[in-house]
Amino acid sequence: MMSDSGSGVDPSPIQNVSAQYTKIQRQYQQILDRWTPHVLYRWLSTAGLLVVFLLRIVLSQGWYIVCYAHAIYLLNLLLAFLQPKFDPSLNDDLMADEIEEGGEVTSPLPSQRDDEFRPFVRRLPEWQFWLSSTRATIIALLCTTSEVFDVPVYWPILVVYFFTLFALTMRRQIQHMIKYKYVPFDIGRKARYGGAK
């Protein structure tokens, strides 16, 4: 039996599946590319998904483990978003080793006013933070449709433990920011080169 293609051979089912997967992957990437410049709308949509997820948890009075795991994952994403890509505390250890070996010391962050300006580079970029948190929220929402994930727990303990963990990790992060003098946000007015201030 001949097909309409010029080769005379029917494509195998594996090739059909592969072609369909590639087509879906391309369409998914096009959707993500369209969403890239719309930062506010992206985060509002994620916040809406998060509200739907939390309403599902509160109204059904279940899936507290899923909610706790989701909150811990979002906390880890937030911490990666707030941290610099090149950790200055690790550079302190490297500088101490170089001083012992008699090597030259270079600092990744400006230490004086005359040093070159280096912008804050995040360990987790905003786009990846949004994409990961949105995916995690969708997965957590899907987990609430299965009774397998509805493990009975005493939820007040999870809430107290999460807020304790949040307070301790954020305190440590703020102390790190103060010690190494960096701010992970663009605060203030941005001036253009050559323009009036």
Rank of each mutant, 00 (worst) to 15 (best):
V160I: 08
V159E: 09
V39Y: 08
T36R: 05
Y182I: 01
L158D: 02
W43N: 09
Y64H: 13
T164H: 14
Q27H: 01
W35M: 14
M170R: 10
R26E: 08
R113C: 01
F117C: 10
T36P: 01
L40Y: 11
D97I: 14
I57Y: 12
Y73F: 15
L54H: 15
W130E: 06
D186M: 02
W155N: 05
G6Q: 05
L165N: 09
L32V: 02
Q30K: 04
S60L: 08
S111Q: 15
I139S: 07
T36K: 03
L141N: 04
R172P: 03
M170D: 07
K181N: 08
A191H: 11
D114N: 13
P11Q: 02
S12H: 07
M95Y: 02
V153W: 15
V160F: 09
Y28K: 06
M170N: 12
V105G: 00
F149H: 07
V148I: 08
S18Y: 04
W35K: 02
I24N: 13
I139C: 07
Q128C: 03
S18T: 04
K85A: 01
P152D: 06
D97V: 11
M170P: 04
Y68E: 06
A96P: 03
S3I: 03
L75Y: 15
Y180D: 02
L109Q: 13
L90M: 15
T106C: 08
E98K: 09
V148M: 10
Y161H: 12
Y64I: 00
L94I: 12
V148R: 07
M177G: 05
F120G: 00
G48C: 03
S18M: 08
Q175S: 07
M95R: 11
Y28C: 07
E147H: 13
F149T: 12
I138H: 01
R118Q: 10
E147C: 02
Q29D: 13
E116L: 06
I139R: 03
D114H: 11
L142A: 14
I57K: 08
A47D: 04
D92S: 10
D97G: 09
C67F: 15
S146Q: 03
Q15V: 04
Y180G: 00
E126I: 03
F120T: 00
S60R: 13
S3M: 01
Y73E: 14
K181D: 15
A19S: 08
L94S: 14
P11V: 06
E98P: 00
A71D: 10
F185W: 06
N16R: 14
W63A: 01
F120W: 00
A71S: 14
A96E: 09
G188Q: 00
T137K: 11
G103L: 11
E100H: 05
Y161F: 15
E101M: 13
T22A: 12
P156A: 05
A47K: 05
L141Y: 02
P110W: 14
L158H: 08
L55I: 05
I138T: 00
Q128W: 10
R192L: 12
T36I: 11
